[in-house]
Nucleic acid binder design. Structure first.
Length: 603
RNA sequence: GGUUCCGUAGCUCAGCUGGAUAGAGCAACAGCCUUCUAAGCUGUGGGUCACGCGUUCGAAUCGCGUCGGAAUCACCA
């Protein structure tokens, strides 16, 4: 690494000149600003106090000494406390020769204990929406990024397949479904079930309304709330649903059969969506298979006195001494809650993989839940609870606010993907791009472009930030977009294709001995990729990858604009530029694959 | 009320170990295709980095406070 070498050089020079050790963490590099000559800049202000010199003098003395000692530094100059170093062309050219065909450039070899990444974690009562898309893309992408940084990643999904919400869909189907199926209606299974969930809610609301006292509107807020709770409790529909959940937990064969059938419809629907999104899992857990383990863990904790039981038989963990609240772990009727099953799944996962990290990709609305989960695990004697990491991401909001399934204000995942592919088709046709392609090739291309735009749109935003999606303004294909990245790649491929057709040979040796400005910007940009990749992993941030490839594309397009490649008369320089273009395309492919984006060879 | 997160151009967002004059895209306007793909390139305009105080040679970045927004504090998941 260049920076490592320069850092050591700096520290050595500092010791020689001033007889003191410069702390390594104080030696900071930044890219030299374009208005000054140089490639890398060291800020020397922090060292002025140590040696009692003016910043300019300090920088000059260090610059002289460093330049004397290293063949990498061609020149230096000083502006105030900034020591600008110009790296020699030799360094850049040998870097280029080493890496321009290196498919693994920036990647680290995989080793060590697994890192388990959970993402997606859908409920089986409704289809996936835009919020799930963010979750799935983040989970998938972060996994890829960690793998590229040498982590042994296991992707898991936890399907939330049991609970009162599924019973609602089941009741609605039984009452008003007329025995319909995905086949009989021609609907995707997850959408069909979702419809019944909405239907339940509609009927339920009507029923509650009819059960409210006649003077409801005249009550104060507190009384209103109470009256509503009573009406909800008294609702026959809700009572029926609760009864069904009891039957399910008791293993009633008829309920279980219905449950299984309807869940399978949903899974088939999810599989289609996952496949289209391009995400996958190494292992799928089902809550119905893990919640009992959580229950037994809680009972164990009760025996050990870590947890306590109230008079009504409910079981709690008291976290008040840690600044949190008491947390319910078993209801008074002995049934489990969300936390109970998460304790079970965490344990199962730990036993199975002995991971060094358990990463959960879950929305920031559950920050508190994971805080509690870790603490309860630790209290129960599982020190590895501290290895749990909640990768907390922000919600996707609409201009009208948060998406709500029950209120129908959601952007459906399947619809959105359809729309993206459709727009890709329209744009391509308008630009007359797909004339030479067969229908099959064209459709594949539209899928790649549409999904690419969607993925980039979602992933370029810092995960922890709430992001806005306006359905009225469709996702762009110009500017800082996935299409721009793909277009740049296709453009490079076109040049390389033309070179091959013309019989131009591109070898692995670099045949020039100097670099021109347009070429250099591109090359130094690629030089930073390994550290970008590393930072993206540390920060769990696909956005850092997205921003990097955007910069790289801009850099290439500028280079493309100012430097002719195929028309270059100097044969060696022409080859060098082809190598540069090839390296850019390769890096673009490998980097955008980490986001799940595919790069077409023409578009 | 407690806790956590957020506030940067009209809009969507970068700016990550504190560094030089705060950057992109969209939208607006003006240029560039007989020359490697114009989904591109070049340029113009647009900012009290929510506000105040502090730390520092230096703050959008760190600390404290204020204001504004979101989430959460469920015998829902």
């Amino acid at each position: 690494m260049l920076e490592e070498i320069l850092k050591r050089l700096f520290i050595d020079a500092f010791r020689k000149l001033y007889g003191q050790e410069a702390p390594a963490n104080m030696v900071n590099f930044q890219k030299t600003r374009p208005e000054f000559e140089g490639d890398l800049t060291i800020v020397v202000f922090p060292f002025t106090k140590m040696v009692g010199k003016k910043p300019e003098d300090l920088a000059n003395e260090l610059g002289t000494e460093m330049t004397k000692k290293s063949e990498f530094i061609a020149k230096y100059n000083v502006v105030k406390g900034f020591l600008n170093l110009l790296i020699s062309d030799n360094y850049w050219l040998s870097f280029m020769e080493k890496n321009h065909e290196n498919e693994l450039f920036g990647r680290k070899e995989v080793s060590g204990n697994p890192v388990v990444v959970e993402y997606s974690s859908p409920n089986t009562n409704k289809p996936l929406h835009l919020g799930h898309i963010r979750n799935n893309l983040l989970g998938w992408s972060v996994s890829e990024i960690l793998k590229a940084n040498g982590e042994n990643v296991v992707r898991v999904n936890l399907v939330n397949d049991r609970g009162i919400h599924i019973c609602k869909s089941m009741i609605a189907w039984k009452k008003w479904g007329d025995k319909c199926t995905p086949e009989s209606t021609g609907k995707k299974g997850d959408h069909l079930i979702g419809d019944f969930y909405v239907m339940f809610d509609k009927h339920f609301k009507e029923e509650v309304k009819s059960l409210l006292p006649a003077n409801y509107d005249e009550l104060d807020d507190e009384a209103k709330e109470k009256a509503k709770a009573e009406a909800e409790n008294a609702s026959p529909l809700m009572q029926e649903t609760r009864e069904m959940l009891r039957q399910w937990e008791a293993g009633d064969p008829e309920v279980r059969k219905l449950w299984e059938m309807m869940n399978n419809w949903v899974y088939q629907g999810f599989d289609v969506t996952y496949k289209r999104l391009g995400v996958s899992f190494d292992k799928v857990y089902y809550e119905s298979q893990t919640y009992l383990l959580g229950k037994s863990t809680v009972m164990e904790g009760l025996k050990n006195g870590v947890l306590y039981q109230r008079d009504d038989n409910s079981v709690w963990c008291d976290l008040r001494d840690e600044g949190l609240d008491e947390k319910l772990l078993l209801r008074r009727d002995g049934t489990s809650v969300y936390m109970t099953q998460d304790l079970g799944t965490a344990q199962l996962r730990y036993d199975e993989f002995h991971p060094k990290k358990l990463i959960y990709v879950v929305g920031n609305e559950q920050n508190y839940h994971f805080d509690v989960l870790k603490r309860v695990l630790v209290r129960l004697g599982f020190a590895w609870g501290n290895d749990i990491e909640h990768l907390s991401y922000g919600m996707v909001e609409l201009p009208s606010g948060k998406m709500k399934s029950r209120e129908g204000t959601v952007v459906d995942a399947d619809d959105l993907m359809d729309e993206m592919v459709d727009t890709a088709r329209k744009v391509s046709e308008e630009l007359g791009k797909a004339k030479d392609l067969s229908d099959e090739e064209a459709n594949k291309l539209y899928h790649v472009i549409g999904l690419g735009a969607l993925k980039y749109f979602i992933l370029k935003v810092d995960p922890k930030k709430t992001m806005l999606f306006d359905p009225k303004e469709s996702i762009d294909f110009n500017g800082n977009t996935g299409s721009f990245i793909q277009y740049t790649h296709a453009r490079i491929c076109s040049v390389l294709r033309k070179a091959a057709e013309a019989g131009i040979n591109v070898g692995d040796k670099v045949m020039v001995d100097n670099i021109l400005p347009g070429e250099k910007h591109l090359l130094t940009n690629m030089h930073t990729w390994p550290s970008v990749l590393e930072q993206a992993a540390i920060n769990r941030s696909p956005a850092m990858i997205a921003n990097y490839i955007y910069e790289l594309c801009k850099e290439f397009n500028q280079f493309y604009q100012e430097c002719s490649i195929l028309k270059e008369e100097d044969v060696n320089r022409r080859e060098f530029r082809l190598q540069l273009a090839g390296m850019t395309a390769r890096l673009l492919r490998n980097a955008s694959n980490l986001l799940g984006m595919q790069m077409p060879e023409r578009m």
